[in-house]
Design a protein around this nucleic acid. Structure first.
Lengths: 202, 202
DNA sequence: ATTTTCCGATCGATCGATCGATCGGATGAT
DNA sequence: ATCATCCGATCGATCGATCGATCGGAAAAT
């Protein structure tokens, strides 16, 4: 449920974890600093010994979530071979697995990103663009090799990215009956369907 | 930008429109009663002459958005013929067009639905299930006719629905360079790719 | 004249944030 | 080894501002 960067102890990390759970459940403006502090077992004033403001706590979670996600994409792509099919499967699997494994972090990083000021949100937008670029590069390479065929690259990228993001919202309720590796394989199949060259009759 | 049910005048509709714009931009908890009233040109107390509470105003927008969306899906399906391809294209086009044409209403109806109590959210969830069922029926019929082939129906339905929902978030910024009918055609293509039977060599 | 609509004032509660005080444990001098 | 000093962390109390909601009465519509 939580990446390793959030599992250690200490007051600061307990505050981050409490903020993560509450922001995911009630949203940024629906959560008070007293809610966060109480869930972390401290007084509200203590929060300001670790974060300059409520927004800074959110910003840290958002950036942390985007970093974790992007790192997993890069790792997966590095482990994949040179086959475009394998590379696309690796990217989509990492994308979906990240959202299924850390749904709260993914929800906060995506949905509550809009509550940040432009300056605080900038690092997350950079990571977002890099992740999308990763996917675009893999698909573009497949197109040049003649194994993929895409009508509208931008819309296809958005569609694949969005499919995975939504997993964070519904997978937690289905976790008992749907294994993550099965989920990742299914979404890999869907992504391949979206980009594969229609097989012409030989 | 607004469905006909929100374009008339009168204080009540001005409040609904103001709430829609502000909820879409800042979220439910990020918008105050005074924000809404000021944007509608009245005092905050006036709002309570038309709505029992802030939540009831949101609930009305959420239900209204879901009704508008579902009605468009049904209309589109009724106008389509009996060909599964055409039916799927009609459904996806209506789905995408609805989110591209009324992005604020779609955003509020989807994102802020989570801020409603279970009772207030129930009607929206019913409409949601009916819309998904519509899509599932069309695809299931295509599968029985042998023109569609789906590995995991539930995941495929979620993927198609989600692709369209995300349009509300990014299309407004691209409206100048991307016509809605082109957008709908592209998403229709993608949806067909997701469900079409892989062509076997004849 | 009656009814509907709206407003100004105001309610108690809670918001994000700040304050000085307090505590235990490390540091340095003797 | 002892004691004085310091410091980061946390506390309780409180700040001004704003929150959602309510009231009686003015204004407008019928």
């Amino acid at each position: 449920m939580l990446p390793s960067s959030l599992t250690a102890d200490g007051t600061r990390l307990r505050l981050l974890r409490a903020g993560l759970e509450l922001f995911a459940a009630r949203g940024y403006h629906g959560t008070s600093i007293r809610d966060i502090a109480t869930a972390a077992g401290v007084q509200s004033a203590t929060l300001y010994g670790h974060f300059a403001s409520k927004e800074e706590l959110l910003a840290e979670l958002v950036v942390l979530g985007h970093e974790e996600h992007h790192r997993r994409l890069v790792d997966a792509l590095m482990d994949a071979g040179s086959d475009p099919d394998d590379q696309l499967r690796a990217l989509v699997s990492a994308h979906v697995a990240s959202h299924a494994t850390f749904p709260m972090l993914a929800t906060v990083a995506n949905a509550e990103l809009a509550r940040l000021s432009a300056a605080a949100a900038a690092p997350a937008h950079v990571l977002r663009a890099k992740s999308i670029d990763l996917l675009g590069t893999v698909i573009g390479r497949g197109v040049r090799q003649g194994v993929f065929a895409v009508d509208n690259m931008e819309i296809t990228l958005t569609a694949i990215a969005t499919m995975g993001i939504s997993v964070a919202a519904w997978y937690p309720a289905r976790a008992a009956e749907l294994r993550i590796d099965v989920l990742c394989r299914s979404f890999g199949d869907l992504a391949l369907r979206l980009v594969q060259m229609p097989s012409t009759s030989p």
